[in-house]
Nucleic acid binder design. Structure first.
Length: 678
RNA sequence: GCUGAUGUAGCUCAGUGGUAGAGCACUCCCUUGGUAAGGGAGAGGUCAUGGGUUCAAGCCCCAUCAUCAGCUCCA
């Protein structure tokens, strides 16, 4: 007999080998019908902490795994799994979020079943659940077409209708290998060889005639995959390495019911409606022009105005926080990039040299060497430190052709870049100040949440980095200490550092819960050495300063793109390029009054647009509304007679009339306070 | 860079080998109105670019450029 502890604390004694489904049935048949999988936690001290890795576990890192999820003592199992020891048992129904990944993983099996029935020559890679659905990587000589996807989806419906049971089978590794080899399933052979070792039993899941090497768990039968959709197809490299064969990755999504699936599509539409590329066009904020080249941004007047507002704020904030503003050239002699190490470590991302007179020049991909030259231009005393140089610097980086994406990934961009030169004992304070500054950027622009990553080097690949192991350890340690001092939780990621030092990346979370990489604080002991930077210490001796690189918007372009999506184009007052739209009810009678109101608002520093066209006021209101102006003021006889304006507030509607002065006071308060709401 | 798709008027899109289309936007005319589309007329296109096939190409073929979905790589 074994003991089963249920979530309410009650304990049942059952025969060894009893399954979670048996227990569910013993509680109530309705529970048994509703339950999807079981979560068990051993109540016995485990002697072996071994876990079996599967392709799924190894190759798709869930958010939870990346950001420190629950302890791994818990695991999900099939309802039919015989229980063999004392466990705490939870029977998870469809309403439990954890079951969504299970049904999606099962949906991937259903899709693989359908694909093999329609296209038996296809070879299978792996098919995990993802945050938004699932995919299956497959190999086939011929590309799948849109029509193929539709027929796969149809066939999946048949597999679901057949309601085939998912059955877990264990067999020897050797049998699995020979069977798969015989079928030419070279990728499955690879996975078994990679994730299991000789002597292991491997687990397979069967439904109908389909068998897949898989750790599970799965829903009880294919009929439980009730709402699904085959979404799209794309290439994916075998084992994620671009030197390898490319596979066809078929994406789908699945839910327990049609309602959730519909909601998912609604969410996708919402994301699309917020797409900064779409809004950038609709609101006439920026463009990218084929004739000028990919990844190069044209800021239109309205986008430019928002940018100016962002930059003005940033510059003022830098000055307030003790930075000096500098400006450095866009092209500099190749020699400089050799000294800095960019020639060696960063060439792939740089535009090739251009020859001028007898020298070669390169476009700058970073601002640091320029700032270093300013530092170096005059001797520095310890009394001068920390020296903080800030610049909104335009940099150009070569990005491969398929990687560009609106404002978020471009070839020319502006970094709100700063370099802090300081003594080793000033580092921590400076890093802490940078983090505080970054937090203030996020809150000012209306982001509530963020995640922090500490990117360190990969000690196995020292050739990718400059500097000694000792230096790296010290640098990583100071960043860690700074984070700990601020009590900021972070995850450490090896191999993600810049070539010259480790970095703290702040990933902000937008209103839809998406993560964006923006702010970065990087530690650097290498460039000071390469440029032989010095300061005279209290002791009269020469010392080497250390350097902190930091960008808070990261890239002005990217930050702007994220802002557009975050606000869905409805900018808060202080950022809105046009803050007030004026609508005269009748041009003949009210245009003069509207023009006088416009003059007064503009004199108060507000950005105003007047629609003096001969359309109807309803149309004018609609046009301004689509432009997402914060306020629309309607001006007619009543207003003209009482020196007032009828106020229509974005997303709220008509709020009635106030005097012009009252409106100006309200508007200015919103602007000055950087208010998010109207 | 790789895989697949796409590129037609300012925007969103229809047009599968035989004289380039619609809606919105734009210009003009009528209308002068009370909180999200008043009516009419007009103008606007080397069908991404360059080759090719064909009596004939927006449409078929090849190349290039750009965009999109991913992969890979990154702020």
């Amino acid at each position: 007999m074994i003991k089963i502890q249920l979530p309410d604390g009650s304990v049942r004694e059952v025969a060894k080998g009893t399954s979670p489904l048996d227990i569910a049935n013993s509680i109530s048949p309705r529970l048994a019908a509703a339950v999807v999988v079981a979560r068990v936690r051993s109540l016995q001290p485990t002697s072996d902490g071994t876990t079996t890795e599967t392709p799924e576990a190894a190759e798709t890192q869930s958010e939870e795994a990346m950001y420190g999820g629950a302890a791994q003592a818990e695991r999900l199992v099939d309802l039919t799994t015989p229980l063999t020891e004392d466990v705490a048992l939870e029977l998870l129904k469809e309403t439990d979020p954890a079951t969504l990944r299970v049904v999606r993983h099962s949906a991937a099996h259903v899709m693989a079943t359908a694909i093999l029935e329609l296209f038996p020559e296809t070879k299978l890679g792996h098919g995990p659940a993802t945050d938004n659905g699932f995919f299956y990587d497959v190999y086939r000589d011929v590309a799948f077409t849109e029509a193929d996807l539709a027929s796969i989806e149809q066939k999946m419906a048949e597999v679901v209708a057949r309601d085939e049971k998912f059955v877990r089978v264990e067999e020897t590794r050797e049998k699995g290998l020979t069977d798969y080899a015989a079928q030419g399933e070279f990728m499955k052979v690879h996975f078994i060889e990679r994730f299991t070792k000789s002597g292991d039993e491997i687990s397979l899941y069967k439904n109908g005639n389909f068998t897949d090497f898989c750790r599970g768990p799965h829903v009880p039968s294919t009929g439980r995959v009730k709402a699904f959709k085959v979404m799209s197809i794309a290439g994916a490299y075998w084992l994620g390495d671009e030197k390898n064969q490319q596979l066809q990755r078929i994406y789908g999504t699945a839910f327990f019911n049609q309602k959730d699936l519909d909601a998912h599509f609604k969410h996708l539409e919402e994301i699309k409606a917020r797409d900064h590329r779409v809004l950038g066009k609709q609101l006439d904020l920026f463009s990218i022009q084929e004739v000028a080249g990919a990844g190069l941004i044209f800021w239109h007047p309205k986008g430019g105005l928002i940018r100016k507002t962002m930059e003005d704020w940033m510059r003022a904030e830098c000055v307030r926080r003790g930075y000096d503003l500098v400006v450095t050239p866009h092209i500099m002699r190749r020699e400089l990039w050799k000294i800095s190490g960019h020639e060696g470590y960063y060439s792939d991302n740089m535009y090739p040299p251009m020859e001028l007179d007898d020298a070669e020049y390169r476009l700058k991909p970073m601002n640091c060497p320029g700032h270093i030259l300013i530092y170096k231009n005059s001797p520095k005393s310890y009394r001068d430190l920390p020296v903080r140089y800030a610049e909104l610097g335009n940099v150009y980086r070569y990005e491969r052709s398929g990687t560009m994406h609106g404002l978020l990934r471009v070839r020319g961009f502006t970094q709100d870049d700063a370099h802090i030169f300081c003594t080793p004992d000033q580092i921590e304070d400076e890093v802490v100040a940078c983090i505080e500054f970054a937090q203030s950027v996020l809150t000012t622009f209306g982001f509530a949440d963020f995640k922090v990553e500490l990117s360190t080097w990969d000690p196995k690949k020292p050739q990718d980095y400059t500097g000694s192991a000792d230096h790296w350890a010290t640098a990583i340690n100071s960043l860690k200490t700074a984070l700990q001092r601020k009590n900021i939780p972070f995850v450490e990621i090896a191999g993600e550092a810049a070539f010259y030092g480790p970095k703290i990346d702040v990933k902000l979370i937008d209103v839809l819960g998406r993560l964006w990489q923006l702010s970065t604080v990087q530690f650097d002991f290498n460039l000071p050495a390469r440029f032989e930077l010095e300061y005279i210490g209290e002791d009269g001796e020469r010392h080497r300063p250390v350097m902190v690189h930091r960008a808070l918007f990261g890239s002005v372009e990217r930050f702007f793109g994220v802002l557009i999506e975050h606000y869905a184009g409805a900018f808060p007052m202080w950022l809105a390029p046009v803050q007030v739209g004026l609508v005269p009810i009748s041009n003949e009678k009210h245009l003069a009054y509207a023009e006088s109101v416009k003059a007064r608002l503009e004199a108060a520093g507000l950005r105003v647009e007047l629609d003096g066209g001969n359309g109807k006021m309803n149309a004018k209101i609609r046009d301004f509304g689509l432009q997402k102006f914060p306020f629309i003021l309607v001006l007619g006889d009543k207003e003209a007679a009482s020196d007032s304006v009828s106020v229509r507030v974005r997303a709220k509607g008509d709020e009635g009339s106030v005097t012009v002065d009252e409106f100006i006071a309200r508007a200015k308060k919103l602007v000055d306070g950087h208010a998010m709401e109207l």
